[in-house]
Design a protein around this nucleic acid. Structure first.
Lengths: 132, 132
DNA sequence: GTACTATTGATAACGAATCTCATTACAGTT
DNA sequence: AACTGTAATGAGATTCGTTATCAATAGTAC
């Protein structure tokens, strides 16, 4: 049976209070920073669980680590992510969904999945970058 | 100045003789298997170089490792990849390019990049999977 | 051939993620 | 409220992909 622990709740809250994607490591250290004695392994486990349950999205950063973010559950969506500050916007893309399906079918592929993410500089970071 | 070594050439060839994406590690061991004394670090370096020069595509496997594949250079494209056997088809997707750009612009994002890959089971693997 | 230096490669170092296992504490039962 | 079974925790060890180190090697220009 699944149990409710303050640790899981702490991870859920920490995730929710964050605008962008965060790594398990940084989430752990920020929790530690607030005085919580939560363990690193527990953070990893909680994040993996949340991802499975659909309460969190995950993606691979360009450096290879997994990043997580609270998401609106039950709905397939993609992300527009600021390379600089991590700000993330959820985007829907029915057109892309259909495209992925048809491309797969065209080549005889079945059970299509897809990874679609857009990276860029958000308005604020674009402004900052332009000034230097 | 950049030099031509047999090591780089060996990596380029090994990449080209492969249909799907391969990891640096497996490329290294297959080269070693053919009697080449090439070092692991060199394989990593050569692959990184090829990726920068546009002669190779790279993506992150779900297990976190980087995979590489020879590609038709100078042209932006995406991939349709078999989850099971690694067979890869290069696909063009002008519609998706435009979509990514417009979505980014809509939210004030500049310098948009995107990651678009479709995973599935290729025709052959679909058949096999259906039989068991 | 000589000199310069980019490249190599064995190995150490690094870092993210997972595993181990004794301990803890949640959640039903009595 | 005490009891009990077991899911969950966490410190530390471990794994594994990748990168850094640095002395030795070997392209390339002259």
């Amino acid at each position: 049976m699944k149990r409710n622990t303050w640790q899981r709740e702490a991870v859920r809250e920490a995730l929710g209070s964050n605008e962008g994607f965060v790594s398990a490591q940084s989430l752990h250290s920020s929790l530690r920073g607030t005085g919580s004695p939560i363990g690193l392994a527990t953070v990893y486990r909680a994040l993996a669980d949340l991802a499975v349950e659909g309460e969190a999205d995950s993606l691979q950063s360009l450096e290879g680590e997994s990043l997580y973010r609270a998401c609106t559950p039950g709905q397939h969506h993609h992300h527009l992510i600021c390379r600089n500050c991590g700000l993330t916007v959820e985007i829907e893309a029915d057109a892309v969904e259909l495209w992925a399906k048809s491309v797969a079918a065209e080549h005889g592929f079945t059970q299509p999945n897809h990874v679609v993410d857009v990276f860029g500089l958000c308005a604020a970071c674009s402004r900052t970058a332009g000034e230097e």
